[in-house]
Write a protein that binds this DNA or RNA. Structure first.
Length: 119
DNA sequence: GTTGTGACTTTTT
DNA sequence: GAAAAAGCCACAA
């Protein structure tokens, strides 16, 4: 039986290497629910209150939207996320945007015939 | 069991 | 480039 959607997303987020990011739609797709990008974000928000409201060790800050922008600004974590990303080597511009084409990462498990661009 | 909401995505204007 | 609308599904009360 497939694990909970939440577990799936968290597992993927936990595998994101340093200096790389994943989009919500991407996580939703890998989790088996294409189009459920919103739920990915909701799961993350739930996770904050479920674990320790800090990150529990999950690089949730590596999760951004398809526009390569940080979505946590409206939740109040944008400032923190930007700091964490910059600390890992992710370059953010003045509008909190990053080079998604170069920073987006795909799990090796799905790298069978993937769009994995390069690095 | 039903209702409401949301850290999104994509296309179109 | 920016804004608006519709679609989508999971989690919480």
């Amino acid at each position: 039986m497939a694990p909970a959607f939440r577990e799936r997303v968290l597992a993927l987020v936990a595998r994101i290497p340093e200096g790389h990011v994943m989009t919500y739609g991407q996580l939703a797709l890998l989790a088996g629910q294409p189009g459920a990008a919103r739920q990915v974000g909701f799961v993350m928000n739930s996770l904050m209150g479920s674990v320790s409201a800090g990150g529990n060790g999950l690089p949730w800050h590596r999760v951004i939207n398809a526009q390569g922008r940080v979505s946590t600004h409206k939740v109040g974590f944008g400032d923190m996320q930007e700091g964490l990303l910059r600390a890992e080597g992710v370059v953010l511009d003045g509008v909190g945007r990053c080079d998604l084409a170069a920073r987006q990462w795909w799990p090796e498990e799905e790298r069978g015939a993937p769009p994995t661009p390069l690095l």
